[in-house]
Nucleic acid binder design. Structure first.
Length: 211
DNA sequence: ATCTAGATCGGCT
DNA sequence: GCCGATCTAGATG
């Protein structure tokens, strides 16, 4: 497959190179930072939207008290499933949040996608989000799914072969790590990974972890 | 059957 | 910075 064509802004158009499943069948703490810079792409009847991943969080298995996989339940069962599956859940009764399932099948893990740099289909994202502000389009897990047209119906969708997928992008120059946002346990674990200096983060990197 | 704590967001002070 | 919206999975009785 030919590499994605690029316009003068450096943004892709035309065919995109999909991420192979093998890259996700690894330890979650390795996969999470590696996903920074990749594109999340969604092809729908309304058009194609794509964003560059700039912020993620790692959620591990039964040993991670902040993870839904801390308990193996009907909801979290998908985290033990095949890598490259979407885990989408409803947060605070209002917002869909999207994860990419990691680890070989049979081991639990997922990477929460928290922020994108809008790349393609920006007008469509603006319509879905009801805002023009580029920095409010996908800077937060609930905003991201709304901008991309991702709903609870995408739970357990295959992210390798379907209309919602990951594709090669531009790796970050520098990665920073911080504590995960919005959790009340395991706050000493620095399992949030961001592209340092990106203006599209859901929250800035605290000074203490930004030497 | 009922309770409650969330991997959040937007509007307001 | 604070607060209310909105609702479900999972726990408890």
């Amino acid at each position: 497959m030919a590499p994605a064509a690029r316009d003068r802004t450096g943004h892709p158009h035309g065919a995109l190179r999909r991420l192979p499943r093998a890259l996700l069948a690894r330890a979650t703490l390795e996969v999470a930072p590696a996903l920074l810079g990749y594109y999340l792409v969604h092809e729908t009847p309304e058009g194609r939207t794509a964003g560059r991943i700039v912020e993620v969080e790692a959620y591990l298995g039964p040993r991670d008290p902040a993870s839904h996989a801390y308990r193996r339940t009907q909801r979290s069962e998908v985290m033990w499933g095949p890598p490259g599956t979407a885990y989408v859940y409803l947060s605070y009764g209002n917002h869909a949040c999207m994860n990419v399932v990691t680890e070989p099948e049979g081991r639990a893990g997922a990477v929460l996608l928290r922020a994108l740099e809008p790349v393609e289909g920006i007008a469509l994202m603006q319509r879905r989000r009801r805002t023009q502000d580029l920095h409010a389009l996908a800077s937060g897990p609930g905003r991201l799914t709304q901008a991309m047209g991702i709903t609870l119906a995408h739970n357990r969708a295959d992210l390798i072969s379907g209309p919602l997928y990951l594709a090669r992008g531009r790796p970050p120059a520098e990665v920073a790590r911080t504590a995960r946002i919005g959790i009340s346990s395991a706050t000493d674990r620095l399992w949030r990974f961001v592209e340092r200096g990106s203006p599209f983060l859901s929250r800035p990197v605290p000074r203490a972890t930004s030497p």
